[in-house]
Amino acid sequence: MIKSRRSFLKVAGIAAIGLGAAPAINFAASNSHGTGEAVMTKDPEALLARRWGMVIDTNKLDEQIAQDIVKACNNAHNIPDFNHEVDKEKYPDTRPVNKKQEIKWIWEEHFNYAFTDKEDEFLAEKFKNLDFLVTCNHCKNAPCTQACPTQATFKREDGIVMMDYHRCIGCRFCMAACPFGSRSFNFRDPRPFIPKINPEYPTRTKGVVEKCDLCAERLARGEQPYCVEAGQGAIIVGDLEDPESEVRVLLNENYSIRRKQSLGTQPSVYYVV
């Protein structure tokens, strides 16, 4: 039924190892009958790119918008809020939280923390109190994907650094590898701390690492990421390899910086300053 190289390789691999060989072979055998062939494809409306990137226009960013963006992302992706009061009836034995074990996908940082290699004694006044938004940079040479021993975090062909929560063993090597502190670990079951679960997106289980996935699930449906939607023009997401794209036009017309460029990871998130 399903004819794809991936599934063939997978079946072959599983059979070779001899783990759970029986169901896999049965499944492969069932391919022979049936009226047609099952195929797995992208939604025709999906947004595609050669390399997804993000431009954050700090001129359009203010306290309110930054907060809206963080909130929109947190709510949509079921990110636990450790300040949330736990429903004692639903989750009776919830232990007290350690706030240092929080989860963050996109959050506010001051210039000195966001750009540690651009320490400036006489920083322009307007940057001093500005809240920069930081998130996963979806680096071109991502050290996290290199570190992962199971390919649970990997680089998609379109440049998005993805997390496969089904496969992650929770070794946290990727967290040590990330130079931007963009990764969070589920030290505990996050559900008691999610104010309102969004049924459109899964929660995570304890023991896996998570981070921003550039709203891969939205792009697949032809929608813009939540941060773009909530950002009122402060965040633009588009194809960095396409010279005509909005992100490239913006980068062409403005001076932009990236975080820790000197490390050579090639972040795909640009800041117009």
Partner: peptide, 10 residues
């Protein structure tokens, strides 16, 4: 992993 989300059955 392959971002194919639509399944057209047999």
């Amino acid at each position: 992993r392959s971002s194919d989300r639509k399944y057209t059955a047999a």
